[in-house]
């Protein structure tokens, strides 16, 4: 089978076109996923499992454990947030925008 150059180029463009056309498909799927995540009842799914654990281990142990986990997650988030802010403010990339922003608000 032989192809001339224009045919090859055409095939190449068609392939690119197909790929690009799929971008919008992927995008639509992601939009759908986004909407689904928004409306999905995550708590409802874990209710039987967590409820059973709570039943078996008892209120005291469950409450203490969950509160500890919550506090640990909160501390973790706070630390991560602090590090993120620190990274951002000390980054060379952000230096110029920060300067512009500071000038803008008059600091």
């Amino acid at each position: 089978m032989t192809f001339n150059f224009l045919d090859l180029f055409n095939m190449f463009l068609n392939a690119i076109g197909d790929i690009i056309a799929n971008f919008s498909l992927v995008r639509a799927q992601l939009e759908l996923a986004l909407a689904n995540i928004n409306t999905f009842d995550f708590t409802g799914i874990i209710t039987p499992y967590v409820g059973t654990i709570r039943y078996v281990c008892g209120e005291l142990i469950f409450n203490v454990t969950i509160r500890t986990i919550q506090i640990a997650i909160f501390i973790g988030i706070a630390k991560a947030g602090y590090q993120l802010v620190h990274m951002l403010t000390s980054s060379a990339l952000i230096e110029k925008p920060m300067k512009i922003l500071k000038n803008f608000i008059g600091l």
Binding site: L34, I37, T43, T52, R54, Y55, I77
Partner: peptide
């Protein structure tokens, strides 16, 4: 956005988990 949203949802579940009553569904 999905990554951020999942994180937020996870946190919402963690904060909400104490409101799940004890049950014997399983």
């Amino acid at each position: 956005i999905i990554a951020i949203l999942l994180l937020v949802k996870f946190l919402a579940v963690v904060m909400d988990i104490l409101s799940i009553p004890a049950n014997t569904a399983l």
